[in-house]
Structures are given as structure tokens and as C-alpha cells.
Design a protein around this nucleic acid. Structure first.
Lengths: 199, 199
DNA sequence: GATAAAATTAACCATATGGTTGAATCAATT
DNA sequence: AATTGATTCAACCATATGGTTAATTTTATC
């Protein structure tokens, strides 16, 4: 404990920005959430934009490498896919607001976002795509464009979190039921995907 | 042509709100986009919030019924699923900003959003869920929780649009390549899903 | 063509918001 | 205890923004 003011601000900013977005967040709101004087935000982070960028970078750094490492790991597909599903869903469960947050905020200033990402520079899913192509040539899996498979896996894992409130509404789930839905989903998705690509 | 000011404003508001979100959008910006004096926005729609609600309602009404009707149609699953995929992807292609917009803005005031949706009241995917259950009992498809299958289909169709810039970035696609990716996707997804649920 | 109603505009207004400043307080070092 | 630098705070500031008003122009009606 005994978090410094700087830490308190960052954590508060994380909560507020991920919830309300850049435009929707108020500096005063962040200060209140951090239990700190508003001037402190500028003292430590200079401006709203700088503070936001810090938060956004942290979010991206928290997610992207996790997504990519395992994707390029040295594991046979039939092992890798269940592991991917389990890890992605676990990751999203821990940070359910991040996917929506990351996607939402990049929708504007696309230019700016591009060099921002290039600076961070995580790898690309190249190895995974090649692995799929190889498995396909060997007839181990069904014919499918590797990028399509990649996007399928990502979609299936991430979308339910981005669309969480909509899903809860459409299927009339409360929080507990949704959690249960996710428990089931880990197993369900693995077999779903493996089934889909098994000849 | 000869669109009325009211129409011009609504269309402009649609473009601006879906792009920048409620908080990010500026009334002046909408007025400029509509080539209309800012006071006109208040003259016709009273307030930013009212104008936004109109735009949001239009967006939801444009998407939801389309999603639900076909889902509950009287068609065997093996026909219905390719049709669903084709229609959903076509729909998203025509309105690529809508899914992100709808999801983004409901993330806040969840309470308000709930009665809002209840007022509009589209159906629920009940018939589809039952159809899946029946097919399952008859051994026509693999064992799967019907709601999971529903979310899978939605995720696979919708997510690529919500995450479009991210995908383009990760897979180094330009606009043309992404369009091509979507062309391929219609076929690819249908067989992917059918494969996944065929015993 | 006079009259009334609707539509349009420019000039304002009140307030919220990001940001600044300068004084006060605290903590470490000597 | 004095000095110094970092930290915290209340009071301000400039500006952007949603919204209002009142006058003007356009359109429709008789």
C-alpha cells in the first residue's frame, strides 16, 4: 500500500478513461476518483492527452503481447488452439473493458494511432499464419485462408466482451449467468474451432 | 435531392456521431457537415442529447430487426447459417461504423440504455435457440449450447468490422485487401461454421 | 399583395472544462 | 533548526461548447 499520488492517478485514469473514453472523461472526475487535487494530474502528466496516452499505451501493452506470443509459440495446432482460447478468455475476463477501449479510441485519429503502434512494435502473427498453411498442405486441417482462421479465433474470444451488455440484454443474462456462460465458453469454443478445421 | 434542412442535419449527425461518439461530437461540427446554421440543430431537435437519441435509435432500428428476423425464420439450419452470414456481412459492409457505435455508446448509462431498448422491443432469438436444440436432439448437429452457437455466429460476422482498423494494421491490409478479405469471408465463414457443428 | 407562419441567421449567454499560478506544506539533507 | 527541493492545494484563467434570443428572410395562404 502507500501508493504514491502518481500511481493513484494512473489507476484512476485507467478506470475513468476505459469507462468513458477520452472525450467523455473529465479531469476533475479522475482527480476525485484518485482522491487527489486536480492540479496533481497536470503536475505529474502535464495534460489530459499525455495522461490518456499513458493509459492507452499501458492497455495496449497489457493485451497485445499476450495475444501474440502464444500465437507464435512452438506448439501443434490442436494443442495451441485450446490454449489460445483459454488464455484469451481469461485475459479478457481480467480486463473486460480493454478491448472495447482500445478499439473505440483508435477509430478516430487513425494516422496518429498508426505511428503510435509502430513505435510500440509487437511482432506480427506471421509464424502462426505459416503454421496454419503448413498444416493445411499436410492435410491435417481443412482448407482455410490462414488469416480468416486467425480472425475467427480472435472474434470468438474477444467479441463477447466488447458486446457484453448487448449480449446480456439479448439473452436476458444477469452477471452471474454471464460468468457461467464464459465458463462454459472456454470448453465450447475449443471444440467448436477444432471441429471447424478438422477434415 | 432538395433535402430539407432537417434531413441534412440528421444525416450529418449520423456521420459525426458514429465517427466521434456522443462526447466527441460537436454541434458546430454537425452544423458545418450539414451546411446549416448551428441554431437549426436546436430548432429541429432541441438539444444535443435529443439529436443523438434520434441518431442512435435509427442505428439500432437499422440493425437489430435485420439480425433477428432471419434468425427466427423457418429454414433448416444448413440453409439458414449461410444466409445469416451473407446477410450480416453485407449489412455490416453497408454500415461499417454502426456496430462499434452501438456498442460504444451503451457502455455508459447502462440503465438508461435498458429501458431505451425495452421501448423499441424487437423480438428475441428464441426460435433460433429452440431450433438449435431440436437439431441437436435429432443428432443433426454436434452437441453445443445454443446460446454459444448464436454468439459464435454474431462474433464471427460482426467483430471484424468493430476491429477493422486493428485487423488492417495487424495483417498489413489496405482498404482494397480488406474488401477482398470480406469477399472471401462470406464463403469461408459459412463452411467454417457448418463444419464446426456437423457431427 | 397583405398576412401569418415557418425557417434561417448572427449575436449572445452561462457554464463546464482543461489548464495555470503562486503560495503553502512536507520531507530529506546538512 | 535551516535550507532546499518536491509535493499539494485553492483560487484563477481562457476558451470551447451547448444553448438561447430576437431579428430577418422565406414560404405558404387568403
Amino acid at each position: 500500500m502507500a501508493r504514491t499520488s502518481e500511481e493513484k492517478i494512473l489507476e484512476a485514469a485507467q478506470r475513468i478513461f476505459t469507462r468513458f473514453g477520452y472525450e467523455g472523461a473529465r479531469m476533475q472526475q479522475i482527480a476525485d476518483e484518485a482522491e487527489v487535487n486536480k492540479s496533481m494530474l497536470h503536475y505529474y502528466f502535464r495534460s489530459k492527452k499525455k495522461l490518456f496516452e499513458e493509459v492507452y499505451r499501458d492497455a495496449v501493452v497489457k493485451l497485445m503481447p499476450q495475444l501474440l506470443n502464444l500465437l507464435n509459440a512452438d506448439l501443434p495446432l490442436e494443442e495451441k488452439i485450446p490454449k489460445l482460447v483459454r488464455r484469451y478468455i481469461t485475459l479478457m475476463r481480467d480486463h473486460p473493458r480493454l478491448p472495447g477501449f482500445i478499439i473505440q479510441e483508435l477509430h478516430q485519429n487513425r494516422e496518429e494511432w498508426l505511428n503510435f503502434m509502430d513505435n510500440l512494435d509487437f511482432g506480427k502473427p506471421k509464424k502462426f499464419l505459416e503454421q496454419v498453411r503448413r498444416n493445411q498442405e499436410q492435410g491435417k486441417i481443412v482448407k482455410i485462408e490462414p488469416r480468416q482462421l486467425l480472425i475467427n479465433i480472435l472474434s470468438l474470444c474477444v467479441f463477447p466482451f466488447a458486446a457484453q451488455p448487448m449480449i446480456k440484454y439479448m439473452l436476458k443474462m444477469d452477471d452471474a449467468e454471464f460468468e457461467n456462460f464464459l465458463d462454459v465458453r472456454v470448453e465450447s469454443l475449443s471444440t467448436f474451432i477444432l471441429n471447424a478445421i478438422t477434415p
